[in-house]
Structures are given as structure tokens and as C-alpha cells.
Design a binder for these strands. Sequence first.
DNA 1: CCGTGCCGTGACGGTCTCGTGACGGTGGAC
DNA 2: GTCCACCGTCACGAGACCGTCACGGCACGG
Lengths: 226, 226
Amino acid sequence: MPRLLIVEDDDRIRLSLRLALEDEGYTVRDVPTAEEGLAEHRAAPADLVLVDLMLPGMDGFECIRAMRRLGDVPIVVVSARDDTHDVVAALEAGADDYVVKPVAVKELSARLRALRRRASGSGEGAPAVRRFGEIELRPEAGEVLLGDEHVHLTRTEFRLLCELADQSGRVLSRQQLLNRVWGYDVYGDERLVDVHVGRLRRKVERDPANPVHVVTVRGLGYKLAT
Amino acid sequence: MPRLLIVEDDDRIRLSLRLALEDEGYTVRDVPTAEEGLAEHRAAPADLVLVDLMLPGMDGFECIRAMRRLGDVPIVVVSARDDTHDVVAALEAGADDYVVKPVAVKELSARLRALRRRASGSGEGAPAVRRFGEIELRPEAGEVLLGDEHVHLTRTEFRLLCELADQSGRVLSRQQLLNRVWGYDVYGDERLVDVHVGRLRRKVERDPANPVHVVTVRGLGYKLAT
DNA sequence: CCGTGCCGTGACGGTCTCGTGACGGTGGAC
DNA sequence: GTCCACCGTCACGAGACCGTCACGGCACGG
């Protein structure tokens, strides 16, 4: 579900990283150069970026700095050089972590999870399960419980609920939800949000006509009651 | 002066870490056991925690989980074991980073800086809640409390209250309020403000006939009493 | 005491937002 | 190819909300 961007010039490593991390549930794009990586990221920001340091053309440090100027996306350096000087330079440039090739996929994946947890706003420890009244949300497992019964949500409904949960208690406007759930370049009809909120309510509210979890704030948007 | 807590049982390593990181500008406390670390953290939360994994008594994993339950303080593991399994377990337990001894102080310091940057960025910036007498205003949540009971405001009433709150104690003329709340550049009817002030008072004043929060300043406008 | 502004409030019609049902398109599973 | 879950668009009704108006009360200066 989270969108991952890999910037790595070695085809074999790029492919193996891609396959390994797709297995971990990421939606992966991969490019061989910093320039392409920046273009991709500008077009559709990723939730995580993996970047090599030694790249043809613009190098990894420059790439990191450029991405930092665009936003605060978590950046992990994957480098062949196990050198303190490089580590410090990369972190100073704005990277969040630095792992040395050859990477253990399990470790990389754990580091990505830790980073995402930390980067995603209020980042509470490692609950992996969040409660909002009767709703129990398990993002890792991709499942939701109402009371103790399973409810099946579609992908869009699930992402919608997750976004609301990440900012629970705070109002999110329709435009914000469009950006976060559907993507950044959508200028679609904001009523689309209403429809999916309605569908979501039918599944996670005891009385969908009088929602207690997914609450409308008239004129502003929606929020998830804490 | 960020406060750093070191939990490490080896006296020599603990001392050298302490000295090195004090040089980097941290205010350091150090303890040799997880139990003491937790007690210290409970007594006065640190901004960063360094923890060893192999500790006498309660081990590092337990220590991390316990601290996670207390809050979202950034935690870095400093361990002698360079083992993927340990790294994954520590990160899953809630750690943010994992470095292997012997540590390069420059790298550790850079990692701490990167982590602090990340943790403070997404952490709680402003309290986002303002009090005026009995009124509690939460712009993020789009909600207002009078005492401890929720009051429902319409969008216009909410904006009106926010504008008054932004300039609390100072008088705002009807024209200023029209400009800020309604965005008019036209000279609309100033009586419109009166009507909404009246409606607002009915909701946020115990005795709307004798308002103590939203106060009229005859001939000038309105202000929000501090 | 009186008049003149200034302010508070109730009522009302128009407008806008939101919730929902219906429908056609699509992409993946088999 | 066929089916089915899911998605996005649309239209419509209900209710919330807004802005206007008119009326009455209250604070001032004379």
C-alpha cells in the first residue's frame, strides 16, 4: 500500500530490492538515475524513498538534498560504502537512515517500518492496532473489527479509514482526503469523498444514520472521533 | 539542550558515550540498568534514549517496549551484536534506529540529529488548543468546549470565534470582522456581524444577556475577553 | 425626560451542503 | 470470455445554515 521509490543504477540490485519490497506490501516504482527519481517523485510523491549514493550523473547526496527541498518524505540510503564519513554526509544531507549493501531484506524492511511509524504524524509506538471506540484498526493485517466481528472494507475504504485514523480527532477537508487517499494530482469531484464515507459508515457504524466514529464537520470535512 | 538518557551496563562504554555526546551538546543522564532507565525516564522524560540490548535484569527489548508505552521518545539501540535478527526484533519492539558497537561517535551523533529532526518535525508542534475563560477552542478538531461540554458551532460562528481569538483582548470593528470572516471587499451590511455574534453568544455564554467572553465595545465593535 | 443612535433578537425565505440510491464502467479472477 | 466486486458520476431530497429585515430595548447627550 505505501508507495516506495527506488533510485539505484545497478539493474540486478534494483530488481531484487523491488521484488523483495513488493513482497512486503509496498507499491514500488524504480528508476536508475537521480534525475528520473526526482521527476517521478515530483509527479507523484512517494511515501518512502530508497536511494543509492553512487549514481551516474547527479549523485545521491544531491538527490537527497533536492528531495528534501520538495518535502519531508522519509529517505533511506542504500550504499555499498561502509564509511562513517559517507554516513554522516548522507544524514546531514537529509537522509533518515543508512544501510550498507548487501542488505538483509528483513532488516531493511524493519527499518522502513520503524521510519514510517516515526514519520507518520503522531507515530505512537508499535501498537500495530489502533482503537477508536468500537472500531479496531489493524493496518499491518489490513483488517478492521467492529466490536469483535470482522468487517470487510474495500481498498479505498480502508485507506480512507487509515488516513482519518492517522489524524484522528482532527478535521480533514475533502481536498486533503482526496490528496491522501486518491493521490496528489486529483482534481476530482469532492463529492466522491462523501460517497465513500457513506459506504464506510455502512460498515463501521452501528447506526450509519447517526455516526459516532466517522463524524461530519459541516463546512469543513470529516474526522474520526477519538 | 536536548536531554539524553543512556542505558548501558558497561561502565567504560557508558562513560565514553556520555563524554562524547556531552561534547555534542546534549544534557546526559546515564544509568546501568533498564529498571533505573525507566525510573529516570518516568521521573523526567528524556528527548532521546540510547539503550543497550544486553542488560542485567530486564533486557533491552523489554525496556524499549516499556518506554514505548510511556510515550514516543526516539530510541536508539546501541548493541554489540551485529545480527539481523536482533535488529529486526529491536525495531519491532519500537526502537527507531540500531547501531553496532564499536560506534563511530560522529555517525551516532549524525543519526541522533536525523532522528531528532524527524521526530520533532512530525511531533506535536503547537498545542493547538486555546482557552478563554470557560471557552476551549480547538481549531484542528473543529470543536469548541464550554466548560467540559461540547458546543456545536456553525462554520461562520466558528470562524468568527477564531478571528476574535486570534486578536483576543483587542477590539475588532464590524468591518474588520466582515473582512476576516466573510472575506468581503464589498461593504456588506455590518448588522450581519451582530446577528452572528448573537448566535455565537447563545452557544458559548452561560448567560447570553450578560456576556463575559464575547464582549461588546459600544461604538467600536467586539472583542474576546482574555 | 426625550431623542438619537446603537445594539440584540426573533422570524423567514433562499441557498448550500450533505447523504443516499441508482447506474454504467472497469479490471481482476477463473 | 464471463462474472463480480469495486469504483466514480450523477441527481435529488432533506435539513442545516445564512443573510435580510423589522422591531424593541438600552445607553448616551442634551
